[in-house]
Computed example of a mutant assay.
Amino acid sequence: MAVKRFIRHLLALRSATRSHFPKSTLDAIEDAIRTVEASHHGEIRFVVETALDGNDLWRQCTPRERAIEVFSQQRVWNTELNNGILLYVLMADHAVEIVCDRGIAAREEAAIWQRICHDIEAAFSRGEFRVGAIEGIKALGKVLEQHYPGVSYANDLPNRPSIN
């Protein structure tokens, strides 16, 4: 186990995460999700975790592996058209991951998801958490609109971001 990573996660504070994502930012993220979902049949879920627990650190869980676990726990895979997307942030590792359900994953190149993650991480590194999250959601919305156009009436996943 990497000692630096363990210490970084141990010292990560939820209060710091909440200071980067205050209620006004969470409201803005929720509004952005609601707005972009109105133009397509896709679903977006936004989850932020402050740090990994001891078991995940001990088994050297990567941010990607944790994002896949959260994708399952949040039931993002359970959308009607298999077009759910998880936008996952792991604050202690300064990592952003996008996990897509099989419907949308089969229709789009992995490079687009990597670019969106990179753009969000760049905004976060400048301290622009609200801007980075909203611009990332808009970028995901554009991809979903290309592949699942039309007005969506179902809302399979909560629009409110989850902060843990």
Rank of each mutant, 00 (worst) to 15 (best):
E69M: 07
S39I: 05
E80D: 12
R66G: 03
A32C: 11
M91F: 04
L10G: 14
Q73W: 10
A16S: 12
A110G: 05
T62E: 12
A110W: 01
M91C: 06
N55D: 12
D101L: 06
R45K: 14
R107W: 00
E108W: 01
E128K: 07
F124W: 00
V143E: 11
I33A: 07
E128S: 09
Q73F: 09
R130L: 02
S24V: 02
R45P: 10
Y88H: 09
H9D: 13
T50S: 13
G132P: 13
H40A: 07
R34T: 11
D27Y: 02
H20S: 04
E109R: 08
D119I: 00
Q74Y: 11
R59K: 08
A38L: 09
S39P: 02
T17D: 05
L26F: 00
F71N: 08
R8L: 07
G42Q: 14
A139I: 01
F21N: 05
K23G: 00
S39E: 15
I7F: 15
D31H: 12
L11S: 12
I44Q: 11
A122V: 10
L140M: 10
L26A: 01
E30K: 11
W58V: 06
E128P: 08
V89F: 07
I116G: 12
F129H: 12
E80C: 10
S125E: 14
P22H: 02
R115C: 02
K138P: 04
Y88P: 04
L90S: 06
G54T: 04
F6I: 14
L140G: 04
L13Y: 08
R102F: 00
V96A: 11
I68A: 14
A133V: 03
L86W: 11
P22D: 01
R102L: 05
W58H: 11
C117D: 07
K142I: 02
I68F: 02
V48K: 15
H94K: 15
L140H: 05
P63N: 11
F21H: 04
E108C: 01
S24G: 00
S19V: 00
D101C: 04
I44H: 07
L81W: 02
R126E: 15
W77S: 14
D53V: 00
R66I: 01
L52G: 06
C100W: 01
I104E: 05
A122R: 12
D101W: 02
A51D: 10
A123N: 13
V70I: 15
L13V: 03
Q73N: 15
I7H: 15
N82Y: 04
S15M: 03
I120A: 10
E37H: 06
I98K: 13
T35E: 15
E37K: 09
E65M: 08
A95I: 03
A38D: 15
E30Y: 01
V48E: 05
R14G: 09
D27K: 07
